[in-house]
C-alpha cells in the first residue's frame, strides 16, 4: 500500500482554522504550566545561591543547623535531619496507608454490595477535604497522647524485643515523634490512594474477570490473577500520588513530629523534623541573608526529593507496563 493520506496526524497546516486556534490554545496552556515550574526552580536557585556557594554539598550531608553565631557554635546549615525526617515519615505513611487503602478499595469495588460500598467510598473520599491543620490539631490532642500512653509502650514491649527491628522502638515514648508524624500522614494520604485505586479497579474490564471465572477460578483467584495484575500499574501510580502528597505535607506533621533535629537515630520514637516543617517554622525567624538563603535552599531540596521519588515510581510503573501491564496509568 503506497497510498498517502492527506491529513497525516501531527501536521498542522491541514485542517480548518478552528482546529488551529484550538491547538494553539492547548499549546499555550501547557507552555504556561511549564513556565511556572521553570520560574519556580529559577527563583529557588537564585535566592539560595548564597547558601549553595557557602555550604556546597555539606548542606545535604551535615546535621549541624546553627542559624545564630555563638561563642561555641559557628553559623552552619546542614539539612540532613530534615531530609531524613521527610523521607522516613513519608515512607512510613506509604507503608501504613497502602495496604489499608488497597484493601478497602478492593472491598468497596469488588466485594461489598453497592449500598454499602458507595456510601463508604464517599465518606472516605470526604476526608480529602479536611484541612491539614485540622488533622494536626486532632493529631496533637488525640493521637499524640494515644501513641505516647498506649501504642508506643505496646510496640516497645512486643516488636521492641525483637533484635534489629527493636532498634526502631528505642527510647522513652513521647508521642511527638517520627512514628506519630508517619501515622498522621498515613491517615491523610489514605483517601487519595483509596479513591484512585478504586477507580483503577473499577476500570478492569468485565471480560477479564469473566475470562478468569470461566476457567474455574474462585473469587480470590479472580482478584489476585485477573483484577490486581491488570490494575497494578494504576494502583502503584495511586500510591505514588499519595507519597507525593506526604512528602510535601506541612502543617499536620509540624504539629505532631516534635520539631527537633538534634540527632539522627534509627528509632522512630525520637522527635524529628521534616523539610517542610523546618521551612514553616523558621522562615519568619530568618533575619540574616544567609539564614534566608538556607531556608530557600530547603525548598529546593524538597523539590529534588519529590522529583527523585517521582522518577523512581515512573521507572517502577514503566517496568511493570513493559511486562504487559493492563491499565497504562
Amino acid at each position: 500500500m503506497t497510498l498517502k493520506t492527506t491529513a497525516a496526524p501531527g501536521s498542522q497546516k491541514v485542517g480548518d482554522p478552528g482546529d488551529r486556534v484550538f491547538s494553539f490554545i492547548l499549546r499555550a496552556a501547557s507552555s504556561i504550566v511549564l513556565l511556572i515550574l521553570i520560574a519556580f526552580i529559577v527563583l529557588l536557585v537564585i535566592d539560595s545561591r548564597e547558601s549553595i556557594s557557602r555550604f556546597g554539598l555539606s548542606f545535604l550531608s551535615s546535621s549541624k543547623w546553627n542559624p545564630v553565631e555563638t561563642e561555641i557554635n559557628k553559623i552552619a546549615f546542614g539539612a540532613l535531619p530534615f531530609i531524613f525526617g521527610t523521607v522516613v515519615t513519608s515512607l512510613l505513611a506509604l507503608i501504613l496507608a497502602t495496604p489499608l487503602a488497597i484493601g478497602s478499595a478492593i472491598f468497596v469495588s469488588e466485594y461489598s454490595p453497592p449500598w454499602i460500598g458507595k456510601p463508604v467510598a464517599f465518606i472516605i473520599e470526604l476526608l480529602v477535604a479536611i484541612p491539614s491543620v485540622a488533622y494536626g490539631i486532632w493529631g496533637l490532642f488525640v493521637l499524640v497522647p494515644l501513641m505516647r500512653d498506649v501504642v508506643e509502650p505496646f510496640l516497645q514491649s512486643t516488636l521492641g524485643k525483637i533484635p534489629v527491628i527493636g532498634l526502631l522502638f528505642v527510647g522513652p515514648p513521647m508521642g511527638q515523634d517520627l512514628l506519630t508524624g508517619g501515622v498522621v500522614l498515613a491517615i491523610m494520604i489514605l483517601p487519595t490512594i483509596l479513591s484512585l485505586s478504586r477507580e483503577v479497579i473499577a476500570q478492569v474490564p468485565r471480560l477479564q474477570k469473566e475470562g478468569m471465572l470461566a476457567l474455574g477460578a474462585t473469587r480470590w483467584e479472580v482478584l489476585t490473577k485477573a483484577v490486581l495484575p491488570y490494575a497494578r500499574p494504576g494502583i502503584i501510580g495511586a500510591s505514588m500520588l499519595g507519597l507525593a502528597r506526604a512528602i510535601g505535607e506541612t502543617m499536620a506533621v509540624t504539629m505532631v513530629i516534635g520539631n527537633s533535629s538534634t540527632k539522627i537515630t534509627p528509632s522512630l520514637l525520637t522527635p524529628g523534623y521534616t523539610i517542610s516543617s523546618a521551612i514553616a517554622n523558621q522562615f519568619t525567624e530568618a533575619d540574616s541573608p544567609i539564614y534566608f538563603s538556607a531556608i530557600v535552599e530547603l525548598g529546593l531540596v524538597l523539590l529534588i526529593v519529590a522529583s527523585v521519588f517521582n522518577i523512581l515510581s515512573r521507572i517502577l510503573v514503566m517496568r511493570l507496563v513493559g511486562k504487559g501491564g493492563g491499565s497504562h496509568a
Partner: peptide, 16 residues
C-alpha cells in the same frame, strides 16, 4: 466451569 469452558465475544487474553 472447569467442566464447561467458555469463549467470549471479544478475545480476552490476560494482558499481563
Amino acid at each position: 466451569r472447569r467442566r464447561i469452558g467458555m469463549v467470549f465475544q471479544k478475545p480476552n487474553p490476560f494482558p499481563t
